Amino acid sequence: MDTSAYLDAVVERTRTFADWVHGGDATAPVPTCPKWTLADLVDHVGATQRMVAMLVGGRMTEPSEAFAGYVPGPTDSAEWRTWLTDGAAEAKRAFDSVADDTPVWDPSGADAGVPFWSRRLLGEACVHSADAAAAVGTRYDLAPEVAVAAIEDWLDTMTSRGYWENRPAFADAMRGDGQTLHFHTTDAPGEWVVRREPDRVVLEHAHTKADVALRGAGAELLLVISRRRPLAAASTLELQGDRALLDHWIEHMDWVTDD
């Protein structure tokens, strides 16, 4: 998927999210994000899209101005659908106004800029729509190709130099001496090998023997690695190898509370 395709998917996924939450109980808990209410979830999704639109559209190489411009969501849930879809449209316009090599700050540590943010917004939309589905009690579906892109975003961001440097607890937990985890989607092409080294986590796109492997449909794999569904409840996924190593990895995917 390219930047334009990512943003098209963001708009579509946000529209689905908006339909699910529109007119909902703002105080309803979000089971997959225990510290959040439905209003918190809506606020996070819409405000993040607007902040990224400011960063990208403003070609910002320093993020403080965009962070200072955080716009909270409406308190009236009857306004949520319009507010959310407007935010996604605003983000798409911002990306349409730049090229992939336009200098824009991002937290990856790799100066990934515009491509980083386009994929990050898609990952956000996919994972947080799962949160919305859990909160309102509706079924969660995701096209296989979109699920693969969201998994790529999750793994690439988690293994980035910026994440390692800015999350010392994560870095301490992930230090290793070559332990490997293999993730494989079966309904669309997608394979990743994660290797824990003393000073970094290495992500490779490869098919190779690993200490533990988890394979299955992209949507369910995304939900498990993002801690939106317990592995025990993911009956269609196939696990081979060191379960404790996988459990340790998932335990430290801490965006459930920090995102």
Rank of each mutant, 00 (worst) to 15 (best):
M1L: 13
T3N: 05
S4K: 11
A5E: 09
E12Y: 02
F17Y: 02
G23S: 12
D25Y: 05
A26K: 04
T32R: 11
W36D: 03
W36C: 06
T37D: 12
L38C: 07
H44N: 08
T48N: 15
M51G: 03
M54V: 08
G58F: 06
A68G: 13
Y70M: 07
Y70L: 11
V71M: 07
G73R: 01
G73Q: 00
T82C: 13
T82G: 15
K92F: 07
R93N: 06
F95D: 00
S97E: 00
P107F: 00
S108A: 07
A112R: 13
A112F: 13
G113W: 07
L121S: 01
H128L: 07
R139P: 04
A147Q: 01
D153F: 10
D153Y: 08
T157E: 05
R161T: 06
G162E: 00
E165P: 04
R167V: 14
R167A: 15
P168L: 12
P168G: 09
P168C: 11
A169V: 13
T185V: 06
A188I: 03
E191F: 00
W192M: 02
V194Y: 10
R196D: 11
D199Y: 07
R200E: 12
A206P: 05
A210S: 08
L214C: 08
R215N: 01
L221T: 01
L222P: 14
R229C: 10
P230H: 02
T236E: 05
D242H: 05
R243D: 10
L245K: 04
I250N: 10
V256A: 14
